[in-house]
Every structure is written in structure tokens, then in C-alpha cells.
Design a protein around this nucleic acid. Structure first.
Lengths: 256, 256
DNA sequence: AAGTGGTCTAGACCACGTG
DNA sequence: ACGTGGTCTAGACCACTTA
């Protein structure tokens, strides 16, 4: 077994090449980068117990306090979960992380439930111009389309399409059933962790198709949530567009 | 001038009274509480330069590192602004804090602009049952209603009502003009800092009145954003409900 | 040059979970 | 009893701003 020990470059007095000021780069930030790369390359899969702070410090040739600062930052970004007395773990989609981190539809009485999903279809397709842009695809790259509905408290309130770059998800159409929590699937079957997402909310009115899926009248106003999901390396890897009934539910956001 | 020096209670081994476990309470958390109370009572107004970390540490009888941890946490919550080489300041609504912290309507092309506001009316009223609950008012407490529209890129896209407990905002109706940024007004004229907010997004259709204000047809779908604003002491002090046109704009959220 | 916050280190001790 | 992360301290040095 290869010894992984390797010190980081601590020469921090970078005297700017030319033009760019080339900002100072703290050690803990380099440590963080080194640790994130282990998440990216899959050597630290979701759920894994990390080495202790002291071990990591020795491995990387920095002090325990510096490792701590990097780990704390990653935990703040929900990439890790720290448990006093037990250790530091790679975050899992089941940690309640994706569950209520990314799912923002809440009953008007405040009750937060988990949705049940029903897949309607999975198809390979050529990307539309919009999809090409949202996922930053090159010409010729195919995409998967997952159409599904989701119900909350026994009522179908979401109809959505998930668009994925096909080459990142080989054989997706042979997976059956597609689980309710697709982010857990991305992680387990494709080694792909959704690190963050951006959502855009607009209104629209239900089409005939929407009305059939959501059991409502055509023309009823819906909120349309467009989400771009980014991998750890900041590339967009999911674009989904959800139409939601909001007569008994709302989209909840905390601002600080 | 009274010397403010006073050490915190460092007896941390709280041996639970009865029933409740009475959890361990870190020192930096007590420091934070002590500092926040200075924001609440107005002895540290927005924009003020705080004493240096060393001075605060001496005042409170803790180490500089512990003060730092409390200050960092407050800065993370946007209560303070830290500037290397200059000092730590109480956050101001103009710091770009409220501006894009709380205002989430963005042009579809990604351009973020500041809204221009036009006040339609300010009236004193008895709270509706909903308002009574949202602001946790007692019977008999009056409220202010501010009705206004806001425009972005020269187009009126928001119609909103702001509801405030009247006793917290004495003489609000004599202030003219009401500025565009009401959170700056709350802070400057009433010593009230909005620390955080919760928003709930639903759809609705434009009423006759909305249609007139927003220059659209009646029945057009709008997003309705209901926001509760909380003061530093966690009491709800503002409830506003905004109806927004989203044909050229969207409500943007980042999820991590 | 002086003062601030920012980084990094080292070590002591505490709270928590597990064996 | 042991190992983990969490807290607290103390001090050295660095980066940034202002004067």
C-alpha cells in the first residue's frame, strides 16, 4: 500500500507573475481543495468515515487546527457531517441533506413531508437549444429526459422533467425502478455528488398535459421551478423544471 | 464614564437543575449573546466601528481567539462586516446587505437591478386575524399598512403591502418620503434591525386592483411572496406580501 | 510605522460516543 | 478507558489599510 503522506506547498509568498495580482491563498483553503478532490475522484465515497483530524494533519504536513478549519468549511457546505465523539463522515443524500436542503415545498400548515415519486418515462433525446445551454453541452452530446410526478400528503402536486447529460449517466434507462431520491442514485450508481443548486421561480398556467398529471383544470396558475444542479467541480450536471400546484403548499425560503 | 469591563460567567459545568439536561453552553456563544445585546439596545448602531478583538477580549475576560469566533459567527449572519486592516463594523442596510440579501427578483437575463419604489398610501388600521397571528400581536395593538409598487428596469413589476406593528414605529405616517429601502429607515429612525426573514412563495392571479397597479390584464398569474421579518431578538416585526409579475423576471434562490 | 483582522501553530482540557 | 471532535488559550507571524 502506497503511503499517501505528502506535504502541501507552503510557499505562500506568491510574487505575482504579471498583470494579475495573484491573491494570497491560505493554507486551509489548499487543504480544503485537496480534500474535495478526494470526494471528486471517489476515493472518499458518501458515508465514509474520514481519518481523524490528527491523522489528516500528519498526512498533509499541517497543524491540526488548519485541518479543522478546512473540515469545518466543508461541513458548512454540507459536504461533510461531523459527529462529536464519533468522527467526520462524507455526507450522504440520506443525511437529511438533499432531503430538505433541496426540497422546498412545504404544506401551508408548516408540515414538511417527503414526496413520493412516479416515473412516467425515461428517454434519450437530442438536447434542445435551452438544454444545450443550461448544461453547457457540446454539439452531439445526448441527454436523458426523466418525466415524473411527485405527491405530497397523498396528492399529486408536482410534475417535472429532469434533463441529464447522457454520457455522465450511462445505462440510466436500464435502472428500474428509478428511486424517489435521484441524488442518492447519482451518488451510488454514477459517483456524482450534487454539491449545490440554483433555482429560479416563475409562474405559468397548467397546460392540458399538466392538468391531466396534476388533476387540476387547464389554465390553473402553477409555480415553475427551474433548477440547475452543480457537481463538486462546478460543472452543471442536472437541469430540472418542476411545475407545482400551490393551493395547499408553498415554496419556502429562509433569508439571512 | 463607567468602565464597561466585566467578565463573563465561565462556570460551564452546569449540573442540570431537574428534568431538562441543560446543555453545555460554549463561551463564544455567550460572548456572541453579549455582543448581540449591544446591537439590540442600540449602543452599537449600524455603521459603528467596534473595539478591536484584543480590547473586546480584555473587556470580557476571555481570549482573543474566543472573541474572534463570536465575531466570525456574527459576520456569517450578516450582522457585522469585517474589513482586514480596518476593523469590524456593525452591518448597515446599505452594505449591499439587505439590498441583495432580501431582494430576490432578478431579470431573466441574469441582470440584478435595484427597484424604485412608489408609495401609494400609509394607513393605521386594526390588524386582521392573519396579521395578528403573523406579527404575534396582542388584542388592541394597531398596525401600519404601507401600500406601494416597485419598478425594475423602468417597469412596474411588484405591488406590495407592508404590515408593521404601530407601537414599534411611532409617527411612521409623518415620514415623507418613505425611502426605497425601508430596512434602512427601520434602522435609522426606529433603531430596529431586521436580522433575518422567512419567505413563502405561492401563485395567485391578478385582481382588478393588481392589474391596474401592474399594468397587466386581470387574471394574469403572479407570484405572491409572503415575508416575515424578524428583529435581532427573534420577534416578528414586519409582514409583507408582494405580488410580482414574472414574465421578464424570476425569483432566484441558491441552495447549498 | 502602527494598528487591524487573518492565518497558523501548539497544547491543554472538555463533551460525547463506543467498547 | 479510549478516541473523537469541540472549546479555549497563547503567541508568532502575515496581509491589509491608514496615516
Amino acid at each position: 500500500m502506497a503511503n499517501r503522506k505528502q506535504a502541501l506547498d507552503k510557499s505562500r509568498h506568491v510574487t505575482a507573475g504579471q498583470g494579475q495580482p495573484l491573491r494570497f491563498r491560505p493554507l486551509y483553503s489548499q487543504v480544503r481543495e485537496a480534500l474535495v478532490s478526494r470526494l471528486i475522484d471517489g476515493s472518499w465515497p458518501p458515508g465514509m468515515l474520514l481519518p481523524s483530524e490528527h491523522q489528516l494533519a500528519a498526512e498533509l504536513g499541517v497543524s491540526q487546527g488548519t485541518v479543522r478549519k478546512a473540515l469545518d468549511a466543508m461541513a458548512a457546505d454540507n459536504l461533510l457531517v461531523r459527529r462529536q465523539g464519533r468522527g467526520t463522515f462524507v455526507a450522504e443524500p440520506e443525511d437529511g441533506r438533499m432531503i430538505f436542503q433541496f426540497f422546498r415545498l412545504v404544506a401551508d400548515d408548516g408540515h414538511r413531508g417527503l414526496p413520493d415519486s412516479s416515473v412516467i418515462s425515461i428517454r434519450r433525446a437530442d438536447p434542445t437549444p435551452v438544454e444545450l445551454e443550461m448544461l453547457q453541452l457540446s454539439a452531439g452530446q445526448a441527454v436523458w429526459h426523466i418525466e415524473r410526478t411527485r405527491e405530497l400528503d397523498g396528492r399529486t402536486v408536482i410534475a417535472e422533467r429532469i434533463c441529464l447529460p447522457a454520457d455522465r449517466f450511462p445505462g440510466l434507462d436500464r435502472i428500474d425502478p428509478i428511486p424517489n431520491n435521484v441524488y442518492a442514485l447519482y451518488a451510488q450508481s454514477f459517483g456524482l455528488i450534487i454539491a449545490r443548486a440554483e433555482e429560479r421561480v416563475k409562474t405559468m398556467t397548467a397546460s392540458d398535459a399538466d392538468a391531466a398529471l396534476l388533476d387540476c383544470r387547464e389554465g390553473v396558475p402553477l409555480i415553475e421551478v427551474s433548477r440547475t444542479g452543480y457537481a463538486l467541480d462546478e460543472t452543471p450536471v442536472e437541469w430540472r423544471i418542476s411545475r407545482c400546484l400551490t393551493d395547499q403548499f408553498h415554496y419556502a425560503v429562509s433569508l439571512k
